[in-house]
Amino acid sequence: MIPLAQAPPITFWGVQPGSGEMWVKIVVALVVCLLIMFGLTFLPNAGRKAVVWGFTFAGGLFYVLLWIVPTPINRGPSDLPRPGEEFGFWLQDALPHIVNSANILTAFLLGLGIYSLLRVHLGRIAKRQPDREFSAILLVCMVVMAGFGYADWIMRRFGEGREKLELMQNWTPVQYAFDLMFDGLLQQMDAAMFSMIAFFILSAAYRAFRIRSVESTVLMASALILMLSLLGALVALWNGGVDAMAVALNLPNASVDLKEAHFLNNFKLNEVANWVRSFLQVPALRALEFGVGLGALAMGLRLWLGLEKGGISA
C-alpha cells in the first residue's frame, strides 16, 4: 500500500464503524445533548438570548479566524508546525469537525421538518378538519417512500449479493417499488411542475413584454440577439449569409472556408452575442455581484454581532 493510500488515523472523533465503542459514544452523545437541551429550557429569556448569541458568535468567529490566520497550503501528512504556526495548523485540523457538525445540524433540520409535518397533518386528521384526506395521503406517501428507500439502501449496502443489484434483472420487489415511487412518480412530478414555468413564460411574453420605452427596446433587442444566438441552425444560416456577402463584396481576406478574418465577421450572430455578453452582460453582473457581496458582508456582520433587528437582539 502506498503511503498516501492510508486513511487518517482513528481519533476520538472517528471510531471504527460498527464497533461497540461507536454505539456507546452515540448513546452517550445523545443523552448528553438531550440533558443540555432539557437544561436550556429552564433558562430565562435573557439567558436564552445570551446562549444563542454565544453560539452564533463562536460559529462565526471560527471562520473569521480561519480567514485571517495563515493556514498551511498543500500540507503533507508529515508536515509539522514551526514555532508560531501551531494555531493555523489547529484551525485547519478543526475545520472538518466543524463542517461535520454543521452537516449534522443541517440533518436536524430534516428531523424538524418531519416533526412539523407530522404535528400539523396528524392534528388535522385527529380534529377531522376539511381536506384531511390530503394530509393522510401526504403522511402515507412519506412513510412508504422512506420505508422502501431505507430497505433499498440497506440491501444495497449490507445485503447478501448486493453487487448483483446494480443489474435490473436481479432486482427484488423492494428495488422495483422504490424505483416506481422515486423515479417513476416523485421525479416525474417534480420535472412536470418545473416545466410548467414554460407555459407562464410564453403567456407573459405574449401579453406583458411590451416595447413602451427606449429602455424596454434595448432590453428586448439584447434579449433577442442572445436568444437567437442559442439556435444553432439559425446561427449557421446567418453566418453563412455573412460569409457569402463578404465573398460577393470581394472583401480583402474573405473566403468561404472561414480561414481568414474579414470585417463582416463582426456581424456574425455568435460574434454579436459574444460582444453583448462580454461587454454588456458580464460587467453588469460584476457590478451587481459586487453590490450583493457588500450587502452580504454588512448583513453577516450584523447577524454575527447580534445587531440585526428581529434576530437575537429582538
Binding site: I201, L202, A205, Y206, R207, F209, R210, M220, L224, M227, L228, L230, L231
Partner: peptide, 11 residues
Amino acid sequence: IVLLIIAVVVG
C-alpha cells in the same frame, strides 16, 4: 425559442 420570439413580436 422561435415561438417565444413570435409571441413577443405579435403581441
